[in-house]
């Protein structure tokens, strides 16, 4: 249960980047999401078809002008914003590990879309490597994509944390031995990562030392209060002060 985690793999969309399906085109957010989860789009993500033929086929399937599809995609890309809170937490974890932590990205994204994404963010250096479905030719939750990443990096899945907002992607990750975290709330995920990567006892002791002589008791009606019983219990538990 005290596995030593040396690698974290992050999803990009809706984890490290937020974006909006709300566009000024005739394509509603709901239709937009259906497009992005259509078999045609999946083929495009895996580089099996070109951007042009993807837009054309999507146009046919959803009865939308292909240029409108292209517009919607472009507008969604303009709405991309990096999750800076998560980015700086990753930087911090990496710095604290003294080179003991490798960070990878693993994203379902076509080659053309990844090229655009690349221009939207300056912090790519946090990643040791970025794996995209477009380049690999496989997409999550397909196991082949995970196996490709494991082989290409030589990582041990049991020392690897995998963060993704889609539960089926996390399930696949867990099935190959990764420790999966479903991304819901940035702060919760950062906390979970710290608790997995850090040494709990060392961090706890640092907390006690940093706050020593100031470990006041708290009540739910007024903030701090002096009591000696809890101080004695702390003494009993730590044999210190």
């Amino acid at each position: 249960m005290f596995a030593k985690f040396t690698t974290i793999i992050f999803d990009l969309g809706d984890v490290l980047f937020n974006w909006s399906p709300q566009t000024k085109t005739t394509i509603s957010p709901m239709t937009f999401k259906r497009i992005l989860s259509s078999p045609t789009w999946f083929e495009y993500e895996c580089g099996k078809i070109s951007q042009d033929s993807c837009y054309e086929r999507i146009g046919n399937q959803f009865a939308i002008d292909p240029s409108e599809v292209a517009n919607a995609i472009a507008q969604a890309q303009d709405s991309l914003q990096s999750n800076n809170e998560l980015v700086s937490a990753i930087q911090q974890l990496k710095a604290e590990s003294n080179g003991g932590l490798r960070i990878y990205a693993m994203s379902n994204v076509s080659r053309p879309d990844y090229q655009v994404l690349h221009t939207k963010f300056t912090g790519w250096s946090i990643f040791d490597q970025v794996f995209t479905s477009g380049a690999v030719g496989e997409r999550k939750p397909g196991l082949a994509f995970y196996r490709h990443v494991i082989n290409a990096t030589g990582i041990n899945p049991q020392n690897t944390i995998f963060v993704d907002d889609t539960s089926e992607n996390v399930l696949s990750a867990r099935s190959v031995g990764f420790h999966g975290i479903i991304f819901d709330d940035t702060r919760q995920v950062i906390r979970a990562l710290r608790n997995l990567v850090g040494d709990p006892v060392k961090r706890g002791k640092e907390f006690l030392e940093m706050n020593s002589k100031n470990l006041k008791s708290t009540s739910d009606s007024d903030d701090a209060m002096d009591d000696n019983f809890m101080q004695l219990l702390i003494l009993d538990a730590t044999n210190n002060r």
Partner: peptide, 29 residues
């Protein structure tokens, strides 16, 4: 690095609860 505040005592009449993060953390360690 600490553990979050947990209530340990309660004042029976006012229902005021009292806790200490230092104690939670020491016990958790």
């Amino acid at each position: 690095g600490g553990w979050e505040l947990c209530w340990m005592f309660q004042h029976p009449s006012t229902k005021t609860k009292v806790g200490n993060r230092g104690l939670n953390t020491a016990l958790a360690i």
